[in-house]
Design a protein around this nucleic acid. Structure first.
Length: 281
DNA sequence: CGTTCAACCTGGGCGC
DNA sequence: TGCGCCCAGGTTGAAC
């Protein structure tokens, strides 16, 4: 679920835990399979209790809690991947089921990781492991600062569709299915266009609209679609869904040219686009 | 190397 | 009411 704007919003929302000392940790399990936690709960809790959180950061679509006081070779980042339905909350969750982790603090409300589908992950990583799992070979340049030149050199050799390149976190980190659709609509490009046919100038356009759309989505606190979906850390819905031009709008009229918006499937995922004003390259 | 596909899960919505 | 099916914001690893 959460893409860059949603993860950024949640991380900002829980930013108050920076400077706090963790006094309690629990990993409730209410469903069939426990969420993926590494290392196992006992060892993880032992490392976390008594540690201070230095800062809350974001790496692509992951939330990162930096821990203070780690020895050089010790785990020092708690990396939380919300995947489809994970939420980082500082208020009570939508339901008691699906609470996956609770961090308690002496002088701050608890931090709750809530994940309905349970596909999310929680990992305590050393510097080396963080580099391996979140370094440049896994996460490309952050989409908020995407540059046309870097994007062009990352994709121009490839024959795959441009939509897939935008979703490839090694190309640029943070874009998911919703924003990929909105970015390609804004750039006027058909999502099936092969990367190698996208010009340098068009890459500049893609980079520009990407930064603009993501900044605006962050300002509006992300996209919430339906109930039991993404919420801010205060459990409020985002507002960017009101700005969606094509995502989830199959069969409706294109706001730019009036053509009927289509839904197709690419790489097992829905793609929404306007056949009238998104040109195929 | 690139692409395709199943798998990991829960739950809402729809047709019958 | 209930059942079966399809769908969902993401990622990974195996197979081709």
């Amino acid at each position: 679920m959460p893409e860059l704007p949603e993860v950024e919003t949640m991380c900002r929302g829980i930013g108050g835990v920076a400077g706090q000392i963790i006094t309690g940790v629990s990993f409730p399990r209410r469903t069939r399979r426990p969420i993926l936690i590494s290392p196992p709960a006992g060892r993880l809790a032992k490392r976390l209790i008594g540690s201070r959180i230095d800062a809350v950061e974001r790496a692509g679509k992951r939330g990162v809690l930096r821990l203070a006081g780690a020895a050089a070779d010790e785990p020092e980042r708690l990396v939380i991947e919300p995947r489809m339905t994970g939420l980082l909350l500082r208020v009570p969750p939508p339901s008691d089921a699906h609470v996956r982790m609770v961090l308690k603090f002496a002088e701050h409300p608890p931090l709750i990781f809530w994940d309905r589908r349970g596909l999310g992950t929680i990992r305590l990583l050393t510097n080396e492991e963080f580099y391996r799992r979140c370094g440049p070979s896994v996460l490309g340049p952050d989409a908020l600062t995407l540059a046309g030149a870097a994007f062009h050199s990352a994709i121009h050799h490839s024959r795959r569709p441009i939509k897939q390149a935008l979703l490839d976190q090694r190309v640029t980190a943070g874009i998911g299915n919703i924003y990929a659709a909105e970015i390609l609509f804004a750039a006027g490009l058909d999502p099936r266009s092969r990367c190698c046919r996208i010009s340098r100038a068009e890459c500049d356009t893609i980079a520009t609209v990407t930064r603009k759309i993501l900044r605006r989505a962050i300002r509006l606190e992300g996209s919430s679609i339906g109930d039991e979906t993404y919420r801010t850390a205060d459990s409020r819905p985002g507002r960017y869904q009101r700005c969606h031009q094509v995502y989830g709008r199959a069969g409706a009229a294109c706001p730019r040219c009036g053509a009927i918006i289509r839904r197709i499937v690419q790489a097992q995922r829905s793609t929404f686009f306007c056949p009238g004003c998104q040109r195929r390259k």
